[in-house]
Amino acid sequence: MKAKSRFFLTADGVYLGDHLVAFTPEKECHGIYAGRCRVISVKGGIVVAEELQEFSCGSDIQVYLQKTDFAAAEIVSRAESQIGTVITPMTDRYFCEWCLYGLQEVPKE
């Protein structure tokens, strides 16, 4: 695997609970890998589950390197528990951090 930076690795293989980032020309899209080629992310302020290909929008996917105290199954469980929930003004990146760390305060933008 080739490192893009000290925070990201190319996603040659992704694992349950990984924090994925797709870099499109317009923005970064963040999501939690839930297995079976599914990613849980935020679209239009609503938590959704989508196929890995749909999440990436044809862009390269990378794994955001983070340490967490939660096991992969717990990270995915936290993400899945929010599917269908409206979470504005929370961003997709903050949603992933909530899944990984259990943060409860919405960051000030």
Rank of each mutant, 00 (worst) to 15 (best):
I83A: 02
R78E: 13
G35W: 01
S77H: 09
A11M: 04
S56L: 08
I46V: 03
E105G: 11
Y64E: 11
A72V: 08
A72L: 07
Y64Q: 12
L20Y: 07
K4I: 12
R78S: 10
F23S: 14
I87M: 12
Q82F: 05
Q104A: 05
I61V: 14
K27M: 09
I32F: 02
L20T: 05
C29F: 06
K67A: 14
Q53R: 04
S5D: 15
F7Y: 13
A49D: 03
I75F: 03
G31A: 03
S59N: 15
E51T: 01
K43G: 07
A34E: 01
L100Y: 13
V48D: 03
C57F: 10
E74G: 07
S5K: 15
G45I: 01
D12S: 07
V47L: 04
A22D: 04
I61T: 13
A22Q: 02
G44Y: 10
Y33W: 01
F8Y: 14
V76M: 03
F70Y: 15
A22S: 13
S41A: 04
C99D: 10
C37H: 07
G31H: 00
L20K: 02
D60I: 14
L103E: 10
R36E: 07
V48H: 03
E97C: 14
E54L: 00
A73W: 09
G102W: 15
L65N: 12
I40M: 06
G13E: 12
F55G: 00
A79I: 08
S5H: 15
K67V: 15
L16E: 01
L100S: 11
I75C: 02
Q62P: 10
L103F: 13
V76I: 08
V86L: 06
S56R: 13
G31D: 02
V39M: 04
P107D: 11
G102V: 04
G45D: 01
A73G: 06
Y64N: 11
C99S: 12
W98P: 05
R6M: 13
Y15P: 04
V86M: 05
E74I: 10
Q66Y: 12
T88P: 11
V14F: 00
F23K: 09
A34L: 02
V21S: 06
K43V: 05
Q82E: 06
T91G: 15
I61N: 05
